[in-house]
Amino acid sequence: MTIIYEGKSKRLHTDPDSTERIIVEFTDAVTAGDGARRDLKPGKGKIACDTTEFIYSALASMGIETHLVKRLEGPRLLCHRVRIFPVEAVCRNVAAGSFCRRYGIERGRALSQPLVEFFLKNDALHDPLITAHAIADLGLASEEDVEFMRSVTLSVNYYLTEMFSQVDLKLVDFKLEFGKAADGRILLADEISGDGIRVWEKTGASLDKDLFREDRGDVVAAYRQLLQCIRKSDISKVPSQKERIRVIVMPRDGIKNPQGEVTKKALNRLGLKEADTVRSGRIYDITLDAPLTNSLLMKIKQMNAKLLSNPIAEKSQVRMET
Protein backbone atom coordinates (compact mmCIF):
# COMPACT_ATOMS: atom_id res chain seq x y z
CA MET A 1 0.00 0.00 0.00
CA THR A 2 1.68 3.21 -1.15
CA ILE A 3 0.58 6.78 -0.69
CA ILE A 4 -0.73 8.29 -3.95
CA TYR A 5 -1.54 11.70 -2.62
CA GLU A 6 -1.44 13.54 0.67
CA GLY A 7 -4.00 16.31 1.05
CA LYS A 8 -4.66 18.74 3.87
CA SER A 9 -6.75 16.32 5.91
CA LYS A 10 -6.64 13.00 4.02
CA ARG A 11 -4.18 10.54 2.58
CA LEU A 12 -4.94 8.43 -0.45
CA HIS A 13 -3.42 4.98 -0.70
CA THR A 14 -3.40 2.41 -3.45
CA ASP A 15 -5.64 -0.59 -2.92
CA PRO A 16 -3.48 -3.72 -3.05
CA ASP A 17 -6.43 -5.67 -4.50
CA SER A 18 -7.55 -3.40 -7.35
CA THR A 19 -6.22 -0.57 -9.48
CA GLU A 20 -9.76 0.75 -9.86
CA ARG A 21 -10.06 1.46 -6.16
CA ILE A 22 -8.21 3.52 -3.61
CA ILE A 23 -8.14 3.73 0.16
CA VAL A 24 -8.95 7.11 1.69
CA GLU A 25 -7.46 7.69 5.13
CA PHE A 26 -8.78 10.56 7.22
CA THR A 27 -6.07 12.29 9.31
CA ASP A 28 -6.48 14.34 12.48
CA ALA A 29 -5.30 17.54 10.77
CA VAL A 30 -7.55 20.60 10.71
CA THR A 31 -6.61 23.48 8.42
CA ALA A 32 -8.03 26.87 7.56
CA GLY A 33 -7.23 29.79 5.27
CA ASP A 34 -6.15 27.64 2.31
CA GLY A 35 -3.84 25.67 4.59
CA ALA A 36 -2.27 28.72 6.25
CA ARG A 37 -3.43 27.51 9.68
CA ARG A 38 -2.95 23.88 10.56
CA ASP A 39 -3.52 21.96 13.78
CA LEU A 40 -3.77 18.33 14.89
CA LYS A 41 -6.96 17.39 16.77
CA PRO A 42 -6.84 13.79 18.01
CA GLY A 43 -9.92 11.78 17.08
CA LYS A 44 -11.02 14.20 14.33
CA GLY A 45 -10.05 11.85 11.48
CA LYS A 46 -12.21 9.03 12.74
CA ILE A 47 -15.26 11.29 13.25
CA ALA A 48 -14.88 12.80 9.76
CA CYS A 49 -14.62 9.27 8.37
CA ASP A 50 -17.68 8.08 10.32
CA THR A 51 -19.68 11.14 9.18
CA THR A 52 -18.74 10.69 5.53
CA GLU A 53 -19.57 6.99 5.70
CA PHE A 54 -22.97 7.73 7.27
CA ILE A 55 -23.94 10.53 4.86
CA TYR A 56 -22.66 8.81 1.70
CA SER A 57 -24.48 5.58 2.61
CA ALA A 58 -27.68 7.57 3.19
CA LEU A 59 -27.33 9.40 -0.16
CA ALA A 60 -26.55 6.12 -1.94
CA SER A 61 -29.78 4.66 -0.53
CA MET A 62 -31.64 7.46 -2.36
CA GLY A 63 -29.87 6.68 -5.63
CA ILE A 64 -27.04 9.22 -5.60
CA GLU A 65 -23.83 7.64 -6.87
CA THR A 66 -20.79 8.17 -4.64
CA HIS A 67 -17.24 6.84 -4.68
CA LEU A 68 -17.72 4.98 -1.39
CA VAL A 69 -17.39 1.20 -1.73
CA LYS A 70 -17.14 0.20 1.92
CA ARG A 71 -15.77 1.10 5.32
CA LEU A 72 -12.39 -0.32 6.28
CA GLU A 73 -10.86 -0.64 9.74
CA GLY A 74 -9.77 2.62 11.33
CA PRO A 75 -10.43 6.01 9.76
CA ARG A 76 -10.35 4.56 6.27
CA LEU A 77 -12.79 4.12 3.38
CA LEU A 78 -12.43 1.90 0.33
CA CYS A 79 -13.48 4.01 -2.65
CA HIS A 80 -13.73 3.86 -6.44
CA ARG A 81 -10.71 5.47 -8.01
CA VAL A 82 -11.78 8.64 -9.80
CA ARG A 83 -10.08 11.51 -11.57
CA ILE A 84 -11.16 14.44 -9.42
CA PHE A 85 -12.44 17.51 -11.27
CA PRO A 86 -10.29 20.50 -10.18
CA VAL A 87 -13.39 22.40 -9.10
CA GLU A 88 -15.47 22.35 -5.94
CA ALA A 89 -19.23 22.73 -5.96
CA VAL A 90 -20.59 24.80 -3.08
CA CYS A 91 -24.28 24.84 -2.31
CA ARG A 92 -25.69 27.60 -0.11
CA ASN A 93 -29.06 27.94 1.59
CA VAL A 94 -28.08 30.74 3.94
CA ALA A 95 -25.44 33.45 3.49
CA ALA A 96 -22.25 32.70 5.43
CA GLY A 97 -18.48 32.63 5.06
CA SER A 98 -16.93 33.88 1.83
CA PHE A 99 -20.36 34.66 0.33
CA CYS A 100 -20.89 37.37 2.98
CA ARG A 101 -17.38 38.78 2.56
CA ARG A 102 -17.71 38.82 -1.23
CA TYR A 103 -20.99 40.70 -1.33
CA GLY A 104 -20.82 42.55 2.00
CA ILE A 105 -24.01 41.11 3.39
CA GLU A 106 -24.85 39.93 6.88
CA ARG A 107 -24.31 36.34 7.94
CA GLY A 108 -27.53 34.34 8.30
CA ARG A 109 -29.55 35.93 5.51
CA ALA A 110 -31.66 33.21 3.88
CA LEU A 111 -31.29 32.84 0.11
CA SER A 112 -34.48 32.67 -1.94
CA GLN A 113 -33.40 29.34 -3.41
CA PRO A 114 -30.42 27.01 -3.07
CA LEU A 115 -27.46 28.53 -4.87
CA VAL A 116 -24.69 26.43 -6.45
CA GLU A 117 -21.30 28.04 -6.98
CA PHE A 118 -18.14 26.52 -8.40
CA PHE A 119 -14.64 27.29 -7.16
CA LEU A 120 -11.34 26.48 -8.77
CA LYS A 121 -9.28 24.22 -6.49
CA ASN A 122 -6.08 26.20 -6.21
CA ASP A 123 -4.66 27.22 -2.82
CA ALA A 124 -2.12 29.60 -4.38
CA LEU A 125 -4.97 31.52 -6.06
CA HIS A 126 -7.12 31.14 -2.91
CA ASP A 127 -9.76 28.95 -4.64
CA PRO A 128 -11.39 31.66 -6.82
CA LEU A 129 -15.03 31.54 -7.87
CA ILE A 130 -15.33 30.18 -11.43
CA THR A 131 -18.24 30.23 -13.87
CA ALA A 132 -19.51 27.19 -15.76
CA HIS A 133 -18.38 28.74 -19.04
CA ALA A 134 -14.86 29.29 -17.72
CA ILE A 135 -14.74 25.70 -16.43
CA ALA A 136 -15.63 24.43 -19.91
CA ASP A 137 -13.38 26.91 -21.67
CA LEU A 138 -10.36 25.98 -19.54
CA GLY A 139 -11.06 22.32 -20.26
CA LEU A 140 -11.59 21.45 -16.59
CA ALA A 141 -14.95 19.78 -17.28
CA SER A 142 -17.46 19.82 -20.12
CA GLU A 143 -20.56 21.99 -19.87
CA GLU A 144 -22.66 18.86 -19.58
CA ASP A 145 -20.44 17.55 -16.74
CA VAL A 146 -20.86 20.89 -14.93
CA GLU A 147 -24.65 20.68 -15.35
CA PHE A 148 -24.57 17.12 -14.04
CA MET A 149 -22.53 18.17 -10.97
CA ARG A 150 -24.96 21.04 -10.37
CA SER A 151 -27.91 18.66 -10.57
CA VAL A 152 -26.38 16.16 -8.12
CA THR A 153 -25.30 18.97 -5.78
CA LEU A 154 -28.90 20.22 -5.60
CA SER A 155 -30.14 16.67 -4.96
CA VAL A 156 -27.61 16.27 -2.14
CA ASN A 157 -28.76 19.62 -0.75
CA TYR A 158 -32.39 18.53 -0.81
CA TYR A 159 -31.77 15.22 0.98
CA LEU A 160 -29.33 16.60 3.55
CA THR A 161 -31.54 19.61 4.32
CA GLU A 162 -34.52 17.32 4.93
CA MET A 163 -32.46 14.83 6.94
CA PHE A 164 -30.91 17.53 9.11
CA SER A 165 -34.22 19.25 9.73
CA GLN A 166 -35.54 15.98 11.19
CA VAL A 167 -33.03 16.47 14.01
CA ASP A 168 -33.48 20.26 14.28
CA LEU A 169 -30.30 21.17 12.44
CA LYS A 170 -30.04 23.81 9.73
CA LEU A 171 -27.90 23.04 6.71
CA VAL A 172 -26.31 26.40 5.86
CA ASP A 173 -23.90 25.38 3.10
CA PHE A 174 -21.54 22.62 2.05
CA LYS A 175 -18.81 21.81 -0.41
CA LEU A 176 -18.66 18.80 -2.72
CA GLU A 177 -16.06 17.34 -5.03
CA PHE A 178 -16.75 15.06 -7.96
CA GLY A 179 -14.63 12.71 -9.99
CA LYS A 180 -14.86 10.63 -13.12
CA ALA A 181 -14.47 6.88 -12.67
CA ALA A 182 -12.76 4.60 -15.20
CA ASP A 183 -16.17 3.64 -16.62
CA GLY A 184 -17.00 7.30 -17.31
CA ARG A 185 -19.48 7.75 -14.47
CA ILE A 186 -19.29 10.97 -12.48
CA LEU A 187 -19.32 10.09 -8.80
CA LEU A 188 -19.68 12.20 -5.70
CA ALA A 189 -16.16 11.90 -4.24
CA ASP A 190 -14.04 13.33 -1.43
CA GLU A 191 -16.03 13.64 1.81
CA ILE A 192 -18.84 15.34 3.67
CA SER A 193 -17.94 16.00 7.30
CA GLY A 194 -17.78 19.00 9.64
CA ASP A 195 -14.79 20.13 7.55
CA GLY A 196 -16.81 20.86 4.43
CA ILE A 197 -20.22 21.78 5.75
CA ARG A 198 -21.84 24.54 7.81
CA VAL A 199 -24.52 23.38 10.21
CA TRP A 200 -26.29 25.44 12.81
CA GLU A 201 -28.27 24.29 15.78
CA LYS A 202 -31.60 25.93 16.57
CA THR A 203 -29.75 28.22 18.96
CA GLY A 204 -27.53 29.36 16.11
CA ALA A 205 -24.49 27.52 17.46
CA SER A 206 -22.13 26.10 14.84
CA LEU A 207 -21.33 22.40 14.63
CA ASP A 208 -18.61 22.79 12.02
CA LYS A 209 -15.18 24.11 11.13
CA ASP A 210 -16.20 27.73 11.79
CA LEU A 211 -15.37 26.93 15.44
CA PHE A 212 -11.78 26.36 14.35
CA ARG A 213 -11.66 29.16 11.78
CA GLU A 214 -12.91 31.63 14.37
CA ASP A 215 -11.27 30.01 17.40
CA ARG A 216 -14.62 29.66 19.12
CA GLY A 217 -14.45 26.24 20.73
CA ASP A 218 -13.75 22.52 20.62
CA VAL A 219 -14.05 21.53 16.99
CA VAL A 220 -13.78 17.77 17.62
CA ALA A 221 -16.58 17.87 20.18
CA ALA A 222 -18.76 19.79 17.71
CA TYR A 223 -18.06 17.30 14.88
CA ARG A 224 -18.92 14.47 17.27
CA GLN A 225 -22.16 16.15 18.28
CA LEU A 226 -23.07 16.67 14.60
CA LEU A 227 -22.54 12.99 13.90
CA GLN A 228 -24.55 11.94 16.96
CA CYS A 229 -27.44 14.15 15.88
CA ILE A 230 -27.63 13.10 12.26
CA ARG A 231 -27.40 9.44 13.22
CA LYS A 232 -30.86 9.94 14.70
CA SER A 233 -32.24 11.09 11.33
CA ASP A 234 -33.88 8.70 8.89
CA ILE A 235 -33.39 9.47 5.21
CA SER A 236 -35.87 6.79 4.19
CA LYS A 237 -38.63 9.08 5.55
CA VAL A 238 -37.65 11.86 3.12
CA PRO A 239 -39.89 11.84 0.03
CA SER A 240 -37.85 11.36 -3.13
CA GLN A 241 -37.09 14.51 -5.07
CA LYS A 242 -38.41 15.01 -8.58
CA GLU A 243 -35.70 15.73 -11.12
CA ARG A 244 -36.53 17.48 -14.34
CA ILE A 245 -35.10 16.77 -17.76
CA ARG A 246 -35.98 18.87 -20.76
CA VAL A 247 -35.57 17.52 -24.27
CA ILE A 248 -35.61 20.16 -27.00
CA VAL A 249 -36.21 18.92 -30.54
CA MET A 250 -35.71 21.20 -33.55
CA PRO A 251 -35.69 20.63 -37.31
CA ARG A 252 -32.15 20.24 -38.60
CA ASP A 253 -30.60 23.27 -40.29
CA GLY A 254 -31.49 23.32 -43.95
CA ILE A 255 -34.68 21.30 -43.49
CA LYS A 256 -37.76 23.25 -44.43
CA ASN A 257 -39.94 24.10 -41.45
CA PRO A 258 -43.39 25.03 -42.79
CA GLN A 259 -44.85 25.69 -39.32
CA GLY A 260 -42.05 28.16 -38.65
CA GLU A 261 -42.51 29.87 -42.00
CA VAL A 262 -46.23 30.26 -41.48
CA THR A 263 -45.58 31.61 -37.98
CA LYS A 264 -43.04 34.06 -39.35
CA LYS A 265 -45.54 35.41 -41.87
CA ALA A 266 -48.14 35.83 -39.13
CA LEU A 267 -45.64 37.64 -36.89
CA ASN A 268 -44.67 39.96 -39.76
CA ARG A 269 -48.33 40.65 -40.43
CA LEU A 270 -48.97 41.41 -36.74
CA GLY A 271 -46.26 44.02 -36.79
CA LEU A 272 -43.06 42.18 -35.87
CA LYS A 273 -41.38 43.12 -39.14
CA GLU A 274 -37.98 42.34 -37.60
CA ALA A 275 -38.78 38.61 -37.44
CA ASP A 276 -36.41 37.25 -40.06
CA THR A 277 -36.74 33.51 -39.56
CA VAL A 278 -38.85 31.40 -37.23
CA ARG A 279 -38.13 27.73 -36.63
CA SER A 280 -40.65 25.72 -34.70
CA GLY A 281 -39.82 22.58 -32.71
CA ARG A 282 -40.98 20.60 -29.70
CA ILE A 283 -40.13 20.45 -26.01
CA TYR A 284 -40.55 17.47 -23.70
CA ASP A 285 -40.36 17.94 -19.94
CA ILE A 286 -39.69 14.69 -18.15
CA THR A 287 -39.83 14.44 -14.37
CA LEU A 288 -37.93 11.60 -12.75
CA ASP A 289 -38.57 10.24 -9.29
CA ALA A 290 -34.90 9.44 -8.77
CA PRO A 291 -31.71 11.52 -8.66
CA LEU A 292 -29.90 11.87 -11.95
CA THR A 293 -27.16 9.33 -12.56
CA ASN A 294 -24.94 8.90 -15.58
CA SER A 295 -26.69 5.72 -16.62
CA LEU A 296 -30.09 7.40 -16.31
CA LEU A 297 -28.90 10.30 -18.45
CA MET A 298 -27.56 7.85 -21.02
CA LYS A 299 -30.88 6.01 -21.06
CA ILE A 300 -32.79 9.26 -21.67
CA LYS A 301 -30.43 10.10 -24.54
CA GLN A 302 -31.09 6.70 -26.08
CA MET A 303 -34.84 7.16 -25.72
CA ASN A 304 -34.48 10.56 -27.32
CA ALA A 305 -32.77 9.10 -30.38
CA LYS A 306 -35.28 6.27 -30.53
CA LEU A 307 -38.55 8.07 -29.95
CA LEU A 308 -38.55 11.76 -29.05
CA SER A 309 -36.51 12.97 -32.01
CA ASN A 310 -35.87 11.60 -35.46
CA PRO A 311 -32.13 12.09 -36.07
CA ILE A 312 -32.72 11.94 -39.84
CA ALA A 313 -34.48 15.28 -39.87
CA GLU A 314 -34.18 16.69 -36.35
CA LYS A 315 -31.52 17.84 -33.93
CA SER A 316 -32.07 17.65 -30.21
CA GLN A 317 -30.69 18.53 -26.83
CA VAL A 318 -31.16 16.78 -23.50
CA ARG A 319 -30.93 19.34 -20.72
CA MET A 320 -30.83 18.97 -16.96
CA GLU A 321 -33.23 21.52 -15.50
CA THR A 322 -32.17 22.78 -12.11
Binding site: P258, Q259, V262
Partner: peptide
Protein backbone atom coordinates in the same frame (compact mmCIF):
# COMPACT_ATOMS: atom_id res chain seq x y z
CA UNK B 1 -39.94 4.88 -41.90
CA UNK B 2 -40.02 5.70 -38.16
CA UNK B 3 -39.25 2.10 -37.26
CA UNK B 4 -36.27 2.10 -39.61
CA UNK B 5 -37.65 -0.71 -41.77
CA UNK B 6 -37.60 1.74 -44.69
CA UNK B 7 -35.07 4.61 -44.91
CA UNK B 8 -35.88 8.28 -44.51
CA UNK B 9 -38.62 10.23 -42.77
CA UNK B 10 -41.94 11.86 -43.67
CA UNK B 11 -41.89 15.54 -42.75
CA UNK B 12 -44.75 18.03 -42.68
CA UNK B 13 -45.91 19.05 -46.15
CA UNK B 14 -44.09 22.16 -47.37
CA UNK B 15 -47.44 23.90 -47.65
CA UNK B 16 -48.01 23.22 -43.92
Amino acid sequence: AESGILPGALLPNVSA
